[in-house]
């Protein structure tokens, strides 16, 4: 009996083709996955304990970002409001709303609500909100049209290349300081140019992409 039957060649060809196809597929995957939204979680809109709407609170009611995110100007962390802040209004408004039951429960039990983080950075990135605010980078530069989001979603990839695109050329992303917290700000004819703002804020892009700026 022969070791190789009449169909051995066919099997061999199919196996070789499959192997080649598999390798090609893997290569494409390695190339494509990092730029896919699935990987960067862009537009990621996690389920939250309460379906909090920035659109309603910011654009509808006109609350300033800092009403809740109180430490954004002075700290690395913008600050997630304690339940006390929610209840400042909701002790009087929508007191029986089903949607807000977890908020009332949190206050009654003294247990913080556990929101799901939307913007996550790796531990080797030392991001600081306060310096970006101080240098005229508006909230919406990174958080997208947050004032129009019924549910908070991730508006960017947060890839290092995305960070660097602004660190290398900050001018188009700057605005006057009194407009930093305005989610609907748009550049007008009177707005100082990016170059002028860069000079005013003492921003030096030639050192902004040094490794140590973000990694320590």
């Amino acid at each position: 009996m022969a070791i190789f039957g009449p169909r051995a060649n066919l099997f061999m060809n199919v196996a070789l083709l499959a192997a080649a196809g598999g390798v090609t597929f893997l290569l494409i995957l390695i190339w494509v996955v990092p730029v896919m939204g699935y990987n960067s979680q862009e537009r990621y809109t996690p389920r939250q304990p309460v379906p909090f709407s920035h659109k309603h609170h910011v654009s509808g009611l006109g609350l300033d970002c800092r009403y809740c995110h109180t430490t954004v100007e002075i700290s690395q962390n913008a600050g997630i409001p304690p339940i006390h802040t929610c209840m400042t209004c909701h002790s009087q408004i929508w007191t029986n709303a089903e949607m807000l039951a977890p908020v009332r429960q949190s206050l009654a039990e003294g247990k913080p609500l556990r929101w799901t983080r939307v913007y996550t950075l790796p531990d080797y990135v030392y991001f600081d909100h306060s310096i970006h605010i101080a240098k005229g980078v508006g909230c919406t530069e990174c958080h997208g049209p947050i004032g129009d989001m019924p549910l908070t979603r991730k508006a960017t990839t947060l890839y290092m290349s995305w960070c660097l695109s602004c660190h290398r050329d900050p001018a188009p992303h700057l605005r006057p300081k009194d407009q930093v917290f305005n989610p609907h700000w748009q550049r007008t004819a009177d707005t100082p140019s990016g170059k002028e703002l860069m000079a005013e804020y003492h921003i030096h892009p030639e050192t902004l992409s040094d490794c140590g700026v973000c990694h320590r």
């Binding site: 962390n77 556990r114 790796p122 531990d123």
Partner: peptide
């Protein structure tokens, strides 16, 4: 990729810890 290091960040639980 060192994204999770044994350092504590605001609001973050230690890796694997139960709230």
């Amino acid at each position: 990729n060192m994204a999770n290091q044994p350092k504590r960040l605001p609001y973050e639980l230690p890796y694997g810890a139960q709230a």
